[in-house]
């Protein structure tokens, strides 16, 4: 069935196949690079918008250090150009791996809303940090100058998700780091 093997046709065949395949992939890459970039940008924009009050002109990403790591934040400006809200991206170590949270803050330093960008928590336990209303909504309007951003077990004011203390801790820390970063952004 298959052709006879000698050095020439083996080398020729492999080279040819690799060339054709790389060319095909290069083409496909060029073709999908734009849609992929657009999809990723849309997802990011949606996650930023989800944690900020509606309306307002969104800025480009600004680099900032959050919790000792390079990260970024976005500013939403109202019609007259004054900053209406900030969204800070913050990553900490969760139970199963990195936990990245987008934290929306109003200029007075209060938290507006938070949402999870990516996580690898246990399904049904820690993964509830993306959907547990009671857990997520307690951060809405949270005032870090009045209350402490750590779980109740550690003497703070955050109600942990049942059976997922480590995830709740990581989430609280991510929000706390974002608040700290926000202070440096505001120049306090």
């Amino acid at each position: 069935m298959a052709a006879k093997s000698n050095l020439l046709n083996m080398a020729l065949c492999l080279t040819l196949v690799c060339l054709v395949c790389s060319a095909l992939l290069g083409g496909m890459y060029a073709l999908t690079a734009e849609p992929i970039a657009k999809t990723n940008a849309d997802i990011l924009r949606a996650s930023v918008n989800a944690v900020l009050p509606e309306g307002g002109e969104l800025s480009e990403a600004v680099p900032v250090e959050v919790g000792g790591q390079a990260s970024e934040y976005y500013v939403s400006k109202s019609a007259d150009g004054t900053p209406a809200a900030y969204a800070v991206k913050s990553t900490t170590a969760g139970f199963g791996g990195p936990l990245t949270v987008m934290v929306g803050l109003t200029p007075d330093g209060k938290i507006y809303n938070t949402s999870v960008l990516s996580h690898s928590e246990t399904p049904g336990l820690g993964a509830k940090c993306t959907e547990d209303d009671h857990f997520i909504s307690q951060f809405n309007g949270f005032d870090p100058s009045q209350k402490i951003l750590s779980v109740k077990k550690d003497g703070g004011d955050v109600d942990a998700i049942t059976a997922s203390t480590i995830t709740s801790r990581a989430y609280s820390l991510a929000v706390k780091n974002a608040v700290e970063a926000f202070k440096t952004i505001k120049g306090e």
């Binding site: 919790g67 000792g68 790591q69 170590a93 791996g97």
Partner: peptide, 11 residues
């Protein structure tokens, strides 16, 4: 992938 070990930073 980014990894975290022992509560350290993701990297």
């Amino acid at each position: 992938k980014e990894f975290t070990f022992g509560g350290g930073a993701a990297h």
